[in-house]
């Protein structure tokens, strides 16, 4: 089993590391790898556009994961209440998850369409805008619009996990807290929050790793535009390999993206450990 895991994950990783120290075309007649030392990493780290993309990706990751956490927890708390049609609404939660990212990205592109999109129609109707406008074509705005689509796609995984955690919190704990004199906020702070913290954290770690690797939603919605303002770090791996055919430096880009993900995970793990202490 260990050997299988090692082979499945280890071999491609080793291959990628090896490639990152070489210059090699992706494919073709004469695929020859020349040792270039750290030159690929130098190219990567000196690329101002890539550094900007990393900053952009971090922004995307932090904002979308925070929003998913907040909305996910709020929705889970609502769905934990008794109300008519609760089972139906809970089932609806699965919808965005069940939808392939590419499909939901297409859907949001239609919603944001500047000429006939529902988003424009809605905002116009409630009077927030007085003319249809471009959402994905405006620098600065486009990133945030994609974040909304991303949050819509993924908040429900947080909501579902938190909802499951909520149901494991014994009712007696809430009653004990009520009798101890806790109001709604104190009950949330002292019973609900500690009860959902661990699963929520795991969900957020997974979401963060996923979010930092983001590619398809941008590929479908903006292709990195306008003017590169939504070009995320993984675009550089993709372009470098499949568009520019440089397998060596593509590997370096990939490894740098992986390294940043690992730093993010390490920060999370530390935060979680701290949370665990009394």
């Amino acid at each position: 089993m260990f050997i299988i895991v090692l082979g499945v994950t280890g071999y491609p990783l080793l291959q990628t590391i090896w490639l990152s120290f070489h210059s090699r075309p992706l494919a073709g007649h004469d695929v020859q790898a020349d040792w270039v030392g750290l030159a690929n990493f130098k190219t990567v780290l000196e690329n101002a556009a890539f550094r900007a993309a990393v900053a952009r990706t971090l922004y995307f990751t932090i904002v979308s994961v925070l929003a998913e956490a907040m909305i996910g927890v709020m929705v889970a708390l609502l769905l934990d209440q008794e109300f008519r049609g609760r089972a139906f609404v809970r089932a609806l939660l699965v919808l965005p998850l069940a939808m392939p990212t590419v499909v939901s990205a297409m859907m949001w592109r239609l919603i944001y369409n500047p000429e006939y999109g529902a988003f424009n129609a809605l905002l116009l109707q409630i009077g927030l805008i007085d003319d249809y406008r471009s959402w994905l074509g405006a620098p600065g705005l486009a990133m945030n619009m994609v974040i909304i689509a991303e949050v819509w796609k993924n908040f429900s995984i947080v909501a579902i996990i938190v909802l499951a955690a909520l149901q494991t919190i014994p009712r007696e704990l809430y009653e004990a807290a009520t009798i101890d004199g806790a109001g709604p906020w104190a009950r949330f702070r002292n019973v609900t929050w500690p009860g959902i913290l661990a699963p929520l954290s795991v969900a957020l770690v997974l979401r963060t790793i996923e979010a930092f690797k983001v590619f398809d939603i941008f590929y479908v919605m903006t292709r990195g535009g306008p003017a590169n303002t939504t070009k995320t770090a993984t675009f550089f791996v993709y372009d470098e390999s499949f568009a520019f055919l440089r397998a060596g430096s593509a590997s370096s880009y990939a490894l740098v993206v992986v390294a940043i993900s690992m730093v993010l995970i390490a920060i999370y793990v530390r935060l979680l450990r701290r949370q665990d202490q009394p």
């Binding site: 014994p170 004990a176 002292n190 019973v191 009860g195 009394p278």
Partner: peptide, 13 residues
């Protein structure tokens, strides 16, 4: 004050 069947102690305290 109430004592519950399953103790209802706050697990993180």
């Amino acid at each position: 004050a109430m004592v519950f069947q399953n103790y209802a102690l706050y697990p993180h305290m």
